[in-house]
Amino acid sequence: MSNGGQPAPQPGRLPIRMLHDRLLVSTEGEAGERRSGGGIVIPATASVGRRLVWGLVMATGQHVRQAQVGDRVLFDPEERAEVELSGRDYILLRERDLHAIAQDETDEGGTGLYL
């Protein structure tokens, strides 16, 4: 996903209005190396099986019930369509294609995310 040297747009401030149960998601800044639970660095180019991807909800249609603009969501990258707006690439999803929405904090005080 190219950024063209421009600052990333703010969620909800795009020249588009989503319809029905559709979500506009950005994965910019989500790709890259990650760490395993044991602290081992796993490069972004590592070959793994079918892996879900995190993205940021930028806009939602009027029938979306669970996700909100600004939520970090988990989805299958194989079940998506892409669109370019203002020189940036975004992903179009249906709400039913989401697997999870990240929580701010758990009862233990952490986010609970280990990816």
Rank of each mutant, 00 (worst) to 15 (best):
G70N: 05
G70I: 05
G70H: 03
G70S: 07
G70T: 05
G70P: 06
G70Y: 01
G70V: 05
D71H: 13
D71C: 11
R72L: 09
R72S: 06
R72H: 08
R72E: 03
R72G: 01
R72Y: 04
R72N: 07
V73C: 08
V73D: 06
V73P: 08
V73K: 05
L74K: 05
L74C: 10
L74M: 12
L74Q: 03
F75Y: 13
F75R: 11
F75K: 11
D76I: 00
D76F: 00
D76R: 02
D76L: 01
D76A: 06
D76N: 10
P77Q: 08
P77A: 07
P77Y: 03
P77K: 02
P77E: 05
P77F: 04
P77D: 02
E78C: 11
E78T: 14
E78G: 10
E78W: 12
E78N: 14
E79G: 10
E79Y: 15
E79W: 12
R80H: 10
R80S: 10
R80P: 04
R80W: 02
R80F: 06
A81G: 15
A81W: 14
A81R: 15
A81S: 15
E82H: 10
E82C: 11
E82K: 12
V83G: 03
V83S: 04
V83N: 02
V83Y: 01
V83T: 07
V83L: 08
E84I: 14
E84H: 12
E84N: 14
E84M: 14
L85R: 09
L85S: 10
L85E: 12
L85C: 12
L85F: 08
L85N: 12
S86I: 13
S86G: 14
S86A: 15
S86T: 14
S86M: 13
S86F: 09
S86Y: 09
S86R: 14
S86D: 14
G87R: 14
G87L: 13
G87Q: 08
G87N: 11
G87F: 09
G87P: 10
R88Q: 08
R88K: 12
R88E: 12
R88C: 09
R88T: 06
R88N: 11
R88G: 06
D89G: 14
D89L: 08
D89M: 11
D89I: 10
D89Y: 10
Y90V: 12
Y90D: 09
Y90P: 05
Y90W: 12
Y90F: 15
Y90I: 13
I91E: 01
I91H: 03
I91V: 14
I91G: 02
I91A: 10
L92Q: 06
L92F: 04
L92C: 07
L92K: 01
L93A: 08
L93N: 03
R94A: 07
R94S: 04
R94P: 01
R94W: 05
R94C: 03
R94N: 10
R96A: 09
R96V: 09
R96N: 06
D97H: 09
L98A: 00
L98M: 04
L98W: 00
H99F: 04
H99R: 13
H99W: 05
H99N: 09
H99D: 02
A100T: 01
A100I: 00
A100N: 01
I101Q: 00
I101M: 02
I101K: 04
